[in-house]
């Protein structure tokens, strides 16, 4: 019997600073069979264990790079995430998953795509953006909006630049405020970037990830008013989670379990959940 509670061990093989308290870690499974068998899709998440400290859910932030390795982009905010930030290349963690449903991909083919990523919300979007750019001809125009707290919190900086150079892909960024850093771009909430873009909501899909208040504003005050269909607005929800497999009860909202029914939901599905924030 497969024990779904038993993590597989993985080694940190790379660490990249993404900004203050924000790092992207590259991991590789230690066991070669595990490496071989591992596959996932954008929007899914893993349960990351630091033995002796605990376990937390984290979205996969890489698209399948090479067999058995993957990336997680993590904000140091509490016990487990802070201990991870103290780790070095070569240190060992535990991994379970992938869990969750993941983003729709084939369903978005032939459409224009709008990405709205607030802060760490860019992490789950990154593999989807990469996969779409790799299959550029399957999609229409692609617009990427990213908002960060301050310039030093801008995440995947180099990639955002690269993506912006691709034919038919636009990238816009804004920061809430400037904290002494050099910045000649937009200042203000992510929603101000909507003035800069043109998109036909009838033939588009919007992927919105970030803090819940941002999701509400972006969806209710912008996307819906622009004429996006509720099914064409796709987001992820975040809840306290202890198991990732629908057992521990923590992430249960209304009749849904974020871990097994989500974390990706259309706005139509999200709308009927109890308003708890």
């Amino acid at each position: 019997m497969e024990n779904i509670y038993l993590p597989k061990t993985a080694k940190i093989i790379g660490i990249k600073d993404e900004g203050l308290d924000l790092k992207t870690f590259t991991f590789s499974f230690i066991n070669s069979e595990v490496k071989e068998a591992f596959s996932y899709k954008p929007g899914q998440f893993l349960e990351l264990s630091i033995f002796g400290v605990g376990e937390v859910p984290i979205s996969l932030s890489s698209s399948q790079i090479e067999k058995g390795s993957f990336q997680l982009t993590i904000y140091a905010i509490g016990e487990v995430t802070r201990s991870l930030h103290k780790m070095k290349v070569g240190d060992v963690v535990g991994i379970r998953g992938p869990f969750g449903n993941g983003f729709p991909f084939d369903e978005a083919k032939g459409k224009d795509i709008l990405f709205v990523g607030g802060g760490i919300g860019m992490a789950p979007l990154r593999p989807l953006i990469k996969d779409m750019i790799d299959n550029r001809s399957d999609f229409g125009h692609i617009i990427i909006l990213h908002g960060a707290r301050t310039p030093r919190y801008i995440i995947f900086r180099d990639e955002l630049k690269e993506w912006g150079k691709v034919e038919g892909v636009e990238v816009h960024m804004t920061v809430n405020r400037v904290d002494g850093e050099k910045w000649d771009g937009e200042i203000g909430l992510i929603t101000r970037l909507f003035d800069k873009i043109e998109i036909n909501p009838r033939n588009s899909v919007a992927f919105v990830c970030g803090p819940l208040f941002m999701i509400h504003i972006v969806v209710e005050d912008y996307l819906l008013k622009m004429g996006f269909q509720e099914e064409a607005i796709i987001s992820t929800l975040e809840r306290h989670m202890k198991c990732g497999v629908g057992h521990c009860g923590h992430c249960n909202v209304g009749p849904k379990y974020i871990c097994i029914d989500g974390p990706v939901f259309t706005y139509r599905e999200m709308k009927i959940l109890p308003k708890e924030f």
Binding site: G54, E55, K242
Partner: peptide, 17 residues
């Protein structure tokens, strides 16, 4: 049926979840 999960180290190198 709800539960919490906790790691309890017994030494620096071992423990239980």
């Amino acid at each position: 049926s709800c539960f919490n999960v906790i790691d309890r180290p017994t030494t620096e190198r071992e423990g239980v979840r």
